[in-house]
Design a protein around this nucleic acid. Structure first.
Length: 437
RNA sequence: GGCCGAAUGGUCUAGUGGUAUGAUACUCGCUUUGGGUGCGAGUGGUCCCGGGUUCGAUUCCCGGUUCGGCCCCCA
């Protein structure tokens, strides 16, 4: 991609509307623009990151044996009346009336809808378990949207639902998601700590939140210091093994969000307690038959008896993760993308496009990288070197390949690692070799 | 849903009961060419919207909207 043709409207100054760092950087890096309160358009650079995160989330969901579906954004009010949540949800639910005066709503979540689909289609215990998920836009009409995409009204969420014949089986499903979430965060380059959580309006009796630690996090958390050092990536965990001991390992130590903190436990732990700011990036619930009873999601058991299925739901805020990753990974110059979600791998900077040798070298490098399938953005704009450096640092690609007339004369280019800040003067050949790895 | 504050070119701002300051951005020219270069010229504002007070409101008052800080809620 040539920067001279790419829609990348970067800003030199911080827009006054944005206070938190990820919001500022996303606006400045030309990733998003606000449409109305808590509702954003995604520009090319932002959309690339969003799609990468979505793909990583999807991949792990598929690996754990979950099946992707796609439910609509607009839902009928009827099923919400059946579950009792049409009135419970309150003004956070965006209600719509269609031309036939039917009550509709922009879905804030999908328990009712997925339960209805299940109820209309599955009749036998032999067809269980079923694990379904989708990645779809949701709407919650927050009174005070803020923090950019971290707390928007419209947001992209992966929500998954499990259907099991009994609570033991449901627990197995729950455990799979638990592990899948840890794997997903690790793939994203994040460390998210599982914490016991309130079940909130979803209801139920078992729930965990996953939080990443960031100075600018919205809530205060406390946890055993071991969580900060522990490897939570779960890379060698197979979904078919007994997951209970694994879950136990990751949940036995103290870890609590602000409202669940226990002074007595913290006092007993003494020096082992760490407090920090955290951002919630996932939440899983086991809630039994709350929706299956009300919406008639029942199957025939082995003896022909009717059994309401045991359910759970599992959410990851995909659009929120874009902001959360930035909160966890940036410096005073801009974003520092983890490799897995970086919009491009390499930023190729031509320091002087009117210098023939320099431009020839850049064009060749651009071609070589592009043909090798490396995601590269080539700054071929007619601009000052300073502006190019500043923009490239701002958008935070893992590698910068800096090519200028001065270096070309002696056959060298500069390879800069945005994460470590390390710069090396090396030959173009060895730079390309490194990038092609 | 409750409390508090803010809103002035694309962006960041100064200021004012008599239509507005500076910077940045953008365009053109020259300059410069390894960390937002320098000089000159130009472009760009129903001073958030509606109502009220006033001869006159961007300024004062009321309401709304949007933004920000708390409570609440939350992926």
């Amino acid at each position: 991609m040539r920067l001279s043709k790419y829609f990348l409207p970067t800003l030199k100054e911080n827009p006054g509307e944005a206070q938190v760092i990820s919001h500022r950087l996303m606006l400045r890096a030309g990733m998003i623009r606000q449409s109305s309160a808590g509702i954003y358009s995604w520009l090319p650079l932002g959309l690339r990151v969003l799609k990468k995160i979505e793909a990583i989330v999807r991949e792990e969901q598929n690996s754990m044996g979950n099946q992707e579906i796609l439910m609509p954004t607009i839902q009928p009010a009827d099923i919400w009346r059946k579950s009792g949540r049409y009135d419970d949800y309150g003004p956070e639910m965006l209600r719509i009336i269609d031309r036939h005066e039917r009550d509709m709503l922009y879905g804030p979540t999908n328990e009712e809808l997925v339960t209805e689909i299940f109820a209309n289609s599955i009749r036998s215990y032999k067809d269980l378990p079923q694990l379904l998920y989708h990645i779809q836009w949701k709407f919650r009409d927050e009174i005070r949207p803020r923090f950019g995409v971290m707390r928007g009204r419209e947001f992209l969420m992966k929500d998954a639902y499990s259907f099991d014949i009994n609570s033991e089986e449901a627990r197995c499903s729950y455990n799979k998601y638990f592990i899948a979430y840890l794997k997903t965060y690790a793939s994203l380059g994040l460390k998210a700590i599982p914490m016991t959580a309130d079940t909130g309006p979803i209801g139920g009796n078992m729930s965990h939140e996953f939080l990443i630690i960031a100075d600018t996090g919205e809530s205060e958390i406390a946890c055993h210091r071991q969580y900060l050092e522990m490897d939570l990536s779960c890379q060698d965990i197979d979904y078919n093994q007994d997951l209970q001991p694994v879950i136990h390992r990751y949940t036995e130590k103290y870890a609590a969000t602000d409202d669940k903190r226990d002074p007595a436990i913290e006092k007993a732990l003494g020096d082992d307690v760490r407090t920090a700011r955290g951002i919630e990036v996932g939440h899983i619930f086991y809630f039994g038959t709350k929706y299956s009873e009300k919406l008639g999601a029942k199957v025939s058991g082995p003896k022909g008896e009717e059994i309401a299925v045991e359910m759970g739901s599992y959410g990851i805020g995909v659009s929120r993760l874009v902001g959360a990753i930035i909160e966890a990974s940036h410096d005073d110059k801009g974003i520092i993308w983890p490799k897995a979600v970086a919009p491009f791998k390499v930023g190729l900077i031509n320091l002087n496009i009117s210098d023939r040798d320099c431009t020839v070298a850049c064009e060749k490098a651009y071609n070589d990288l592009d043909c090798a399938g490396i995601e590269v953005i080539y700054d071929d704009r007619e601009a000052r070197p300073g502006a190019k450096f500043a923009d490239m640092d701002l958008i935070g690609l893992p590698w910068q390949l800096i090519v200028g007339p001065r270096g070309i004369k002696t056959g060298s280019v500069e390879l800069k690692n945005r994460i470590s800040g390390e710069r090396e003067e090396i030959s173009m050949e060895s730079a390309l070799t490194r990038l092609l790895d």
